[in-house]
């Protein structure tokens, strides 16, 4: 804690780096996963092998994947961003597919009957319904990326992992270990909570239940 109070500038700078690395990876990952997931979701013959392949990539420990990618992408921030995009991809695509598939086919048929075309059904029915599950994917991907970015410091990506690795490289600098661990844990917990709140806000079943309760209260009142 003392290190954070004495060097707020350093810790703040590393925190910003950490946020930039994970944030940009997450945005790139979403930009790829979203159209891809939507495209693959209703094609089980394509979805199964894709999910299988992504699952294998996900099982490989992040430090091993970074090392395996090292000859291809090299050291530094870009290399780490590639790894982060890969890991986020798995979680995002899986949740986008699961979310879209969980939409009740009866609702889709009703939409079809109302004369909606497939584009309208996607944007007005499927995506709003799938949003909480998709957001859950974004949350988990963010948490995983924050954790992996910490390891990325060893590969020259910067970020809060720097403090951790400096703390063990310089004997007795437990204050740096504490500073790094506390700030990265705080970042992960805050991101988790905020995205969890967002997930709940977009949960339609919850919203319906809430408004039903409200109407009931009005009637009773």
């Amino acid at each position: 804690m003392s290190y954070i109070i004495q060097n707020p500038g350093i810790v703040w700078g590393l925190l910003l780096e950490h946020i930039i690395i994970t944030g940009s990876s997450l945005l790139i990952a979403i930009a790829i996963a979203f159209p891809f997931g939507v495209l693959v979701a209703d094609k089980p013959r394509l979805a199964t092998p894709v999910l299988g392949f992504l699952g294998i990539l996900y099982t490989i420990p992040s430090i091993a994947l970074m090392i395996l990618l090292l000859p291809i992408v090299g050291l530094g921030r870009q290399a780490i961003i590639v790894t982060l995009v890969v890991y986020a991809q798995v979680i995002l695509v899986r949740n986008i597919i699961a979310g879209l598939r969980a939409v009740d086919p009866v609702i889709l048929e009703a939409a079809h009957g109302m004369g909606m075309n497939s584009w309208q059904r996607l944007w007005q029915i499927q995506l709003p319904q799938a949003l909480p599950v998709i957001l859950a994917g974004v949350r988990i991907a963010a948490i995983v990326d924050i954790a992996i970015a910490t390891i990325g410091a060893k590969f020259g990506a910067g970020g809060l992992g720097e403090l951790l690795f400096q703390g063990i490289a310089q004997a007795g600098r437990y204050d740096k270990i504490w500073a790094g661990a506390l700030s990265v844990a705080a970042l992960a917990l805050i991101v988790n909570w905020s995205l969890l709140a967002l997930e709940r806000a977009f949960d339609t079943t919850r919203r319906i239940r809430r408004s039903e309760r409200r109407q009931l209260a009005i009637k009773k009142g």
Binding site: I143, I146, A147, L164, I168, I177, A181, V184, A185, A188
Partner: peptide, 12 residues
């Protein structure tokens, strides 16, 4: 939610 590297290093 806490990164594993943080938990590992906090044991030191």
């Amino acid at each position: 939610v806490v990164p594993s590297l943080a938990i590992l290093f906090l044991a030191i």
